[in-house]
């Protein structure tokens, strides 16, 4: 473990953190612009050209608001909640391979913070931990609507985690590895996993909508029933943290979907491109394409939010337990039979 290794990882982590925050910031702007576009409005256009400074203005507003902690709230846990939500949102990107290795002055620099050989499970663990921020915050507020919302969030997450895990198992049958680096490397060119696992991808995507509490599954923030949801009692930057964590989660789920099913940094014709330009440039083009895929998914998240109305709670549970889980099990069986026949 030399000093360059530490510097390299430190720089990578800092850049990743900055990019996550920047993308989350501009997702709030993009969401309002997309909503405006879909509803035939203009959207934010006052701060800067095309309203490009709107996220900054929103950020300043959040910081300037009065900070209120309810008298009967559990003070420590009230503060831990948003912090935990933010933490769990930020550590998910650590195992994602962002591109092919760079060669900086004869030194091979992998564009991945760490390649643990249980990468897929790590992401799954971080996702399942994310619900604690919501639960602790909702309970510590000492408000019955917050509590109801926290319980909704927990039951929703547990239900959809099952289907998500089952859809990942079918994917792992195809890839034979849990390391995200190897999973991406296998999908060279056009061999994207979505072509082998279309049903698995759809299940995974629906589950990630539920895991990130996005519409049409944003039951924990259902304002018509719950005032505001788990963050009813929150104000100022603590509320900002919750909202921000949601957008970072959206970014992380988009990244995971692009990595697992849509080839990560791979794109058709990458071998030809690699022959034309230097290896570093080729790697960076791959990273650019990866981000393009991520942005497409983020747009898809927003598109769905402004198109499909919210589910009712029993519909949500029925879809999860009676729809997606049997479908995911069937998917595993079909995949297993295919692989058994191919290897026969």
């Amino acid at each position: 473990m030399d000093q360059y290794f530490i510097i390299e990882k430190f720089v990578l982590i800092t850049i990743l953190f900055a990019i996550s925050l920047l993308i989350a910031m501009y997702s709030t702007y993009a969401e309002r612009k997309v909503a405006a576009f879909l509803q035939d409005r203009l959207g934010p256009n006052r701060a800067g050209i095309f309203g490009i400074l709107q996220p900054l203005a929103d950020g300043v507003k959040m910081f300037m608001k009065e900070e209120i902690i309810p008298a009967n709230a559990n003070k420590w846990l009230f503060m831990v909640g948003p912090g935990l939500a933010m933490l769990c949102a930020c550590i998910g990107t650590a195992v994602i391979p962002w591109g092919q290795d760079l060669n900086i002055g004869g030194r091979i620099v992998p564009l991945q913070v760490t390649d643990i050989n249980v990468g897929v499970l790590y992401i799954f663990g971080v996702v399942s931990l994310g619900v604690y921020g919501v639960m602790i915050g909702g309970w510590a507020s000492n408000n019955k609507y917050s509590l109801l919302s926290a319980i909704r969030a927990a039951s929703q997450n547990i239900s959809y985690e099952v289907a998500m895990g089952l859809s990942i198992i079918a994917l792992l049958l195809v890839t034979n590895t849990l390391s995200l680096r190897e999973i991406v490397a296998q999908q060279q060119g056009w061999h994207w996993n979505v072509l082998y696992q279309p049903l698995g991808f759809i299940i995974f995507m629906v589950c990630s909508f539920a895991e990130t509490n996005r519409a049409p599954f944003d039951l924990p923030e259902c304002e018509t029933e719950l005032i505001g949801g788990y963050h009813t009692e929150y104000s100022s930057m603590k509320l900002g943290f919750y909202l921000f964590a949601e957008y970072i989660n959206m970014f992380v789920s988009s990244t995971v979907m692009a990595t697992l099913y849509f080839g990560g940094y791979n794109y058709p014709g990458m071998v030809w491109v690699a022959g034309q330009v230097s290896p570093n440039a080729a790697a960076l083009i791959g990273t650019g394409i990866f981000f393009l895929k991520i942005f497409t998914f983020i747009f898809f998240f927003m598109w769905v939010r402004w198109t499909i109305p919210r589910f009712r709670y029993d519909q949500l549970m029925n879809l999860g337990w009676k729809g997606l889980i049997p479908l995911a099990i069937i998917n595993i069986i079909i995949t297993g039979i295919f692989i058994a026949v191919r290897n026969f």
């Binding site: 499970l121 790590y122 931990l129 639960m135 985690e161």
Partner: peptide, 17 residues
């Protein structure tokens, strides 16, 4: 990682719930 997912992520959520 299984301890992380199953105990911390699922069982303890149910306890808390």
């Amino acid at each position: 990682v299984v301890n992380f997912i199953v105990y911390m992520g699922a069982i303890m959520v149910l306890f808390l719930f």
